[in-house]
Amino acid sequence: MKASTVSQRIESEGKIMSNTSAVLEMPEQSFAGLETRGVHAWFGNHHALSDVSLQFPARTVTGLIGPSGCGKSTFLRLLNRMHEFIPSAAMAGEVLLHGQDIYGEGVDAAAIRLKVGMVFQKPNPFPAMTIRENVVSGLKLAHIKIDNEDDLVENCLSRAGLWKEVKDRLNASGGSLSGGQQQRLCIARSLAVEPEVLLMDEPCSALDPGSTLRIEETIKELAEKITVVIVTHNMQQASRVSDYCAFFLSDGGPGALVEADQTRKMFTNPNDSRTADYVQGKFG
């Protein structure tokens, strides 16, 4: 994607802004469908995340930044109901997908996760499956019929930037790839189910610079079609790939949202001095 189109889109879609207590209204037509309202998270008695309200515009990349333990991964896992797999976990607030609360009564968590995919920090391809089987595993797992498997595999692997490297060994085990390739395989696997939103939890933290760059390109290409939310500890990465940034911070108590804005503004002229300190590497 060219840089100009990114900025044009940002202009046209307006901006998201929020602080810990209030959400600034955005133009209605630009709103993509994923939004949180006053979200809290607990692990047992530990209040991990406090009152986060954010909106994720369609077909943009939002970076979640902040020091370790500020609740950004917890927040990410709340967005596709992965939070609830931790036995002591609890939450409050609303996560709206197309205006419907995904924690509402009678909502099928599995169906939500089909629409809101996730890529994990550690590459986790299924070791008992081949590369090809890994790509289509999401569809098989969710009982979705596949019309043309070969095309789908090629399409997803190409979009994840892995096709050229593995096209001659699709029947090799997913575990035989390098770490960076495994992570791109996991991205391809997430894309096969055609999610509307893709959540990425520090997808490059275990990878070398080359693979990181390749995945960042992949993320930018993905944003032409889907909404991406990415947690990262790498400020350069956040500034390179994201259109919007949200800064989380914990001052000893629960993590909270400090500021969210266009990435350019967050990195050049943020409203909050703590954001400026963090993005300039003065702490965290």
Partner: peptide, 10 residues
């Protein structure tokens, strides 16, 4: 691996 399965909507 279980998480990966669930995250795919299984």
């Amino acid at each position: 691996l279980r998480s990966a399965g669930y995250a795919l909507g299984a």
